Amino acid sequence: EFSMMFKHFDKDKSGRLNHQEFKSCLRSLGYDLPMVEEGEPDPEFEAILDTVDPNRDGHVSLQEYMAFMISRE
């Protein structure tokens, strides 16, 4: 189920989600993330990124995504 969600939000089929795609994916899974303006701080989402994209390369791989989802179950 999680990998299907990942593929759905991987719009460019790159095998990874940019942070915006990842945020959309989390919202569709029921995460209550506040709407913030582009460039505004988003501490809740930043905290999630610290876990799922610790190297802050700007992308979430399928492996990082799956590890995050399994840790939340």
Rank of each mutant, 00 (worst) to 15 (best):
E64W: 01
N55T: 13
L29T: 07
A67L: 09
L29D: 04
V60W: 00
A67I: 06
L62E: 15
A47Q: 15
S3F: 10
G39V: 05
Q63D: 15
L62C: 07
A67Y: 06
K23G: 04
E38W: 07
G30W: 02
P43Q: 10
M66A: 06
L62M: 14
F22I: 05
R56N: 09
E64P: 06
G58N: 03
E64N: 15
T51I: 13
R56I: 01
M4P: 02
E73S: 14
E1K: 15
M35Q: 15
M5H: 03
L26E: 01
L33K: 04
S28Y: 10
N55D: 11
L33F: 12
A67M: 10
L49F: 02
V60H: 00
D12E: 09
L29Y: 10
M69R: 04
Y31W: 15
S28Q: 12
P43G: 08
M4D: 05
D10S: 07
E38K: 12
L29N: 09
N55M: 11
C25Q: 04
Q63I: 08
L26Y: 03
L29A: 09
E38T: 10
E44H: 12
P34H: 08
R56P: 00
G39A: 08
T51D: 13
N55L: 12
I70Q: 15
D32A: 12
R56D: 07
R16G: 04
S24W: 04
H19W: 09
D57F: 10
L49W: 01
N55S: 11
H59W: 14
E46K: 06
S28V: 08
S3Y: 06
G30E: 05
G30D: 08
M35K: 14
G58F: 00
F6V: 03
A67G: 11
R16I: 00
A67W: 06
N18Y: 08
M4K: 09
Y65G: 13
V36F: 07
D32T: 13
H59N: 08
R16S: 09
V60R: 00
E44R: 12
M4R: 15
Y31C: 09
D57N: 14
T51V: 15
M5I: 06
F45P: 01
D53V: 01
F68A: 04
